[in-house]
């Protein structure tokens, strides 16, 4: 039985690194956004892994459970609550970004960030 927490921490680090790489170096804006969603997923995974307790139980108090046994065996639920909020925030940010991309695609006809998000002062000179 491998150490679950360690494996998951490594996965979350890998997800953050993959996401950062794509958000910085990939030219296609949709892939950049997918990369950003991987960063958020990695961070969420990390925070959930903080609350995990090896051999513990789900932190929901069922009827008939002994309270002190529950307190010493349940996983720590605070990080789970935080991640719930964070998932929803990530989804809404992503939706706004995709909406902006759709508007900008209509103007430029390409998904390349080099064209779409070029320095605006240069663009203004080009227009003139």
């Amino acid at each position: 039985m491998a150490n679950v927490q360690l494996v998951i921490l490594l996965t979350s680090v890998a997800l953050v690194v993959i996401g950062l790489y794509s958000a910085i170096f990939i030219d296609n804006i949709i892939k950049k956004i997918i990369g950003i969603s991987f960063i958020e997923e990695g961070v969420n995974l990390f925070i959930v892994a903080i609350g995990y307790k090896a051999g513990g139980v789900v932190p929901i108090l069922m009827p008939g459970m002994d309270t002190s046994w529950f307190a010493s065996n349940a996983a720590y639920p605070l990080p789970f609550g935080l991640v719930l909020t964070s998932i929803v925030i990530g989804a809404s940010t992503l939706a706004v970004m995709l909406a902006l991309v759709m508007v900008l695609y209509r103007r430029y006809g390409t998904l390349s960030t080099k064209v779409m998000l070029a320095d605006t002062s240069k663009k203004e000179e080009y227009d003139e």
Partner: peptide, 17 residues
């Protein structure tokens, strides 16, 4: 997330992500 004892987060994650 389900493996990590967070079933409520797992539900949200499955729907959203």
């Amino acid at each position: 997330f389900q493996v990590l004892l967070a079933p409520d987060v797992a539900l949200t994650q499955a729907i959203v992500e």
